[in-house]
Design a protein around this nucleic acid. Structure first.
Lengths: 134, 134
DNA sequence: ATTTAACCAACCTGTTTGGTAGGTAAAACA
DNA sequence: TGTTTTACCTACCAAACAGGTTGGTTAAAT
C-alpha cells in the first residue's frame, strides 16, 4: 500500500535521465550501472512511464529514453502514482475498492482521508528539479 | 509498510473501549459484534496492546479489556506503532533495515525522511478523544 | 464443576514484492 | 544483408506478507 521499490526506482531513473539527457537518449544499461539497479527490472517499469507520456523511448543503437519536458515540470506525485498505482495509506480509500457499509459512522475515516490528501499534497509539491537541487 | 487491517482494527477496538468502558471490563465478544470484526482475529491483536501497557485484560466471567488512561492520553501514533510495527513509508527507513550504501548521495532520501516525520507528527497529534468527538 | 473470556501456537490461502529467463521488434551500422 | 544495440513483452518464480482460522490452554467468577 505505500512506496515499494517500483516507485522508488522509477524516481531514481527519472532523476538520472534529468541529469544525463542533454546528450539525447540515455540507454537503460547505463542508468542501471550508475544507479546499481537490475536492468531487467527497470525494463519492466519503463513502459508505463512511456505509456503515460512522461518519457520517450527509442529502439536500437543510439536509442534509449529521454524526458519530454523540463525537470521542473514533473512532480514526484505523478511519477509515483504512475509507477505505484495509488498512494492511499489504507485500503478503504483505494480507488475501486468495495464500498464500506460502515463509512457513514466510521470514526476513523475522516482521519485517513486527511492523511491521504496530505500525502498527495506533499508529493505534488515536489518536482524533479527540486530533488536535483537538493 | 503502511496501515493494514491490524492497525485499523486496533484503533477501532480502542475507540470502542473508550465509548464503553465506564461499566468496567468489556469482553471482546461484544466489541467484535458491535464493530463487525472477527473475534478470533481481534484476540490475536490485543495481547500486544496489553504488553505495551495500553490496556488491561482480565480473564473469566465479568472480565474483558479496559483502558488504563483517559482517552485524551492515547495518541493514534502510539496505537498504530504498537499494532503495525513501524509507520515508515519506505523500507529504507524501517528501523533495523540494512544500511544503504548510497544513502550519502541519495537524492530522494531527504524526501522520504521528511514524509516519515510528517506522518508520525500527524498521528501523534491525534488522540482517541479527538476521534470520539469527531 | 461449569461457564466465560483472555491468551497462545500452528496452520492456511491468496496476494504482493522483487525480481529472472528468454525471448521479439525496431533502429542503426557495417 | 546481417549484426549489434536497445526497447519491449510474456511467462515464470521464490519469498514475504496479509488476513485470517483451528483448536486449543489458562485464569477467574458463579
Amino acid at each position: 500500500m505505500m512506496i515499494s521499490t517500483r516507485g522508488r526506482y522509477a524516481l531514481r531513473v527519472m532523476l538520472d535521465l534529468a541529469e544525463n539527457s542533454q546528450n539525447g537518449y540515455v540507454p537503460m544499461k547505463e542508468v542501471a550501472e550508475r544507479q546499481e539497479l537490475s536492468l531487467k527490472y527497470i525494463e519492466r517499469i519503463m513502459p508505463s512511464l512511456v505509456k503515460e507520456g512522461l518519457v520517450e523511448g527509442v529502439h536500437g543503437k543510439g536509442g534509449g529514453y529521454r524526458l519530454v519536458k523540463r525537470p521542473e515540470k514533473y512532480t514526484v506525485g505523478d511519477i509515483l502514482r504512475i509507477s505505484e498505482g495509488d498512494l492511499s495509506p489504507v485500503s478503504c480509500l483505494v480507488s475501486g475498492a468495495p464500498p464500506c457499509g460502515r463509512a457513514e459512522s466510521c470514526k476513523t475515516l475522516p482521519m485517513w482521508k486527511k492523511l491521504y490528501s496530505m500525502v498527495n499534497g506533499f508529493f505534488d509539491s515536489i518536482t524533479l528539479k527540486d530533488l536535483l537541487d537538493g
